[in-house]
Design a protein around this nucleic acid. Structure first.
Lengths: 127, 127
DNA sequence: TGGGTAGCTTACTTCAAAGTGGGTACCCTC
DNA sequence: GAGGGTACCCACTTTGAAGTAAGCTACCCA
């Protein structure tokens, strides 16, 4: 095992308690849409419309809100081009790529094992 | 970069959408108390009361609920001893340890970088 | 002038995660 | 009998993430 909670606390103090930066960041990146937007951007730079289609089910309101949050966190960059119709591109920043290097192994593990962990009912619920 | 969303989708189908097993598991392990309980158990087997003290701020209701969920997921094991007062011990299962091997690098990275990502106000809010 | 586009914002509503306050069973000590 | 302990449960309430519906901007085209 790499580290323990005790070791994390030794080096970073109290973590993941309500309202502290670590909990806030976790909530941002693991939120209903945050994880999907970050994963989509792992594939490369995308425009708003592309993200909208890639992340199925998301409303424009939630896409805007999620991107705003991740941009404020410095994990995603926004580049707007003075064109008509408007073209805005989103991409992971260096920090965002670094984050995904640590996040992808977990997300992949969950993708592979979720079927063993949660009963098929959850699957049915999603149908 | 290890994998992308496209690759995860190729191998596991639609992931992290509302209600599907992957999203449910993520919600369990990243919930307000789930992440702290799992981290606490990374330090080793613990009794109910020990967990209660280790995970500061958690109510008995939420400790019971969180442990019930993680036990149902097969990530945590519960061993009850026929003693008085009652003694119940919780530990990570093999699957739970495997999960933490993938979760700890992310959690550690977030602990180290959260201060750069989220403004100090969040810190103040936690005070 | 009315049509279109992409990319957003806002006011209000919904609902599930989490919290509160009360309770239980059993044994021990005083 | 009354107080303490551990390890939970339950009915009800709160609250914030997410959803809905409507709207907006800036520009181009016929």
């Amino acid at each position: 095992m790499t580290v323990s909670l005790a070791e994390i606390r030794r080096s970073s103090g109290e973590v993941f308690t309500e309202g502290c930066p670590t909990r806030v960041v976790l909530d941002h990146i693991m939120s209903k849409w945050g994880v999907l937007v970050l994963l989509a951007l792992t594939d490369g730079t995308q425009r708003w419309g592309e993200l909208r289609r890639e992340v199925q089910g998301i409303s424009e309101k939630m896409l805007a809100s999620t991107l705003r949050t991740l941009e404020a966190d410095g994990l995603v960059s926004r580049t707007s081009y003075p064109e008509v119709p408007p073209r805005v591109e989103y991409a992971l920043t260096d920090l965002g790529r670094e984050l995904m290097q640590h996040m992808l192994p977990l997300v992949q593990w969950v993708a592979v094992h979720a079927g063993d962990i949660v009963p098929v009912e959850a699957d049915a619920a999603a149908s």
